[in-house]
Structure formats: C-alpha cells, structure tokens
Amino acid sequence: MSFQPQLWVERAGEAVEFYRSASGAIVLHRVGEGDDIVAQLRVGDASFWISAADPDSGRFSPAELNGGPSRTLLVVDEPDAVMSAAVAAGAIAKAGVDDEHGWRLGRIVDPFGHEWEIGRPIGPWPPD
C-alpha cells in the first residue's frame, strides 16, 4: 500500500519542470500536452501526481483558494541542499532549515502555491 497525493496546479507542465529542478524528481508517467497533463513523479521512494487545476470539476489550485489546504513533508537525507535547490528553482523560503521538534527542516512555498516542509529526523524516528 502507498499514499500518492495529487497536486492540482495552474501551469502543470511548468510544475513538472520545477519539481525536477527543485528536488530531483523523476517523471514516471505523463499523459497529455502542455499544461493539460497528468504526471506521476518520484522523489526517492515517494511518488506524487501533478495535474491541471479545474475549478469546474472541484479541483482548485492554491491560487484559487488564496492559500493551500495542506502542507506536504518531503523527507530527504540532505534538507539544506534540497531547500537551497528549491529556492534556486523558484520557491519562496518561509522558514530556513533549522533543528525543530526532533527534525532538521525548513519550509517553502513552491511557485504554484503549495507549502512544503523539507527535512529529516535528527535521531531515530518515531521517538520512543
């Protein structure tokens, strides 16, 4: 069993390229053209989907909501490096990488309005 969220975005084709640059995501599957696509990406052993927002179908982008409905945690070995790559690719840093609540993590908002935490546990997880 796995959990694979789908992010609804404006400019879906551009979003795929952002996630490739920002996190090294690999495109596993892609159908459609331009921004009218559905794509499955993988970072490490985690997969997620990108598709075009469509308010008529109830699929709203963060821009249409004036903010995202959730935050996604991307667990990586080197949060400082991935955070730097994400900002260089166009994300906005909300909080720099620091040690917090047993994690080394930072927070960004990607160019499509989705909020992410990028981090790793500092020690064994979950704690005893």
Rank of each mutant, 00 (worst) to 15 (best):
residue 122 I to E: 00
residue 102 G to T: 06
residue 118 I to Y: 01
residue 62 P to N: 11
residue 58 G to V: 09
residue 8 W to P: 00
residue 99 D to Q: 14
residue 54 D to T: 08
residue 128 D to A: 14
residue 8 W to I: 03
residue 12 A to H: 07
residue 46 A to T: 09
residue 92 I to S: 14
residue 112 F to S: 10
residue 109 V to T: 15
residue 64 E to H: 06
residue 117 E to F: 12
residue 128 D to I: 06
residue 24 G to V: 06
residue 71 R to C: 09
residue 53 A to H: 12
residue 95 A to P: 01
residue 31 V to Q: 14
residue 5 P to E: 07
residue 31 V to H: 15
residue 82 V to H: 03
residue 92 I to R: 15
residue 116 W to Q: 07
residue 21 S to L: 15
residue 41 L to W: 05
residue 126 P to M: 03
residue 89 A to K: 08
residue 41 L to M: 13
residue 39 A to L: 12
residue 66 N to L: 06
residue 4 Q to R: 13
residue 20 R to P: 01
residue 59 R to P: 00
residue 72 T to D: 02
residue 57 S to A: 12
residue 30 R to I: 11
residue 87 V to Y: 11
residue 3 F to C: 01
residue 109 V to H: 02
residue 7 L to E: 04
residue 73 L to V: 03
residue 27 V to K: 05
residue 53 A to C: 13
residue 123 G to C: 00
residue 16 V to K: 09
residue 37 I to A: 05
residue 14 E to K: 14
residue 50 I to G: 01
residue 86 A to H: 05
residue 13 G to K: 09
residue 104 R to P: 00
residue 126 P to C: 08
residue 52 A to Q: 15
residue 42 R to W: 04
residue 123 G to M: 03
residue 127 P to I: 01
residue 54 D to R: 15
residue 63 A to Q: 15
residue 103 W to R: 06
residue 106 G to K: 01
residue 112 F to R: 11
residue 84 S to I: 03
residue 38 V to N: 07
residue 21 S to K: 15
residue 87 V to C: 13
residue 57 S to D: 11
residue 58 G to R: 09
residue 119 G to M: 04
residue 2 S to R: 13
residue 122 I to N: 01
residue 33 E to I: 05
residue 116 W to A: 03
residue 88 A to T: 11
residue 111 P to R: 13
residue 86 A to C: 10
residue 33 E to Q: 10
residue 60 F to S: 09
residue 16 V to W: 13
residue 74 L to D: 02
residue 45 D to A: 11
residue 49 W to P: 00
residue 117 E to Y: 08
residue 91 A to D: 07
residue 40 Q to E: 15
residue 83 M to T: 05
residue 77 D to C: 00
residue 80 D to L: 00
residue 6 Q to N: 11
residue 125 W to H: 15
residue 4 Q to E: 14
residue 91 A to W: 05
residue 62 P to A: 07
residue 1 M to T: 12
residue 109 V to I: 14
residue 52 A to Y: 03
residue 47 S to H: 04
residue 22 A to V: 08
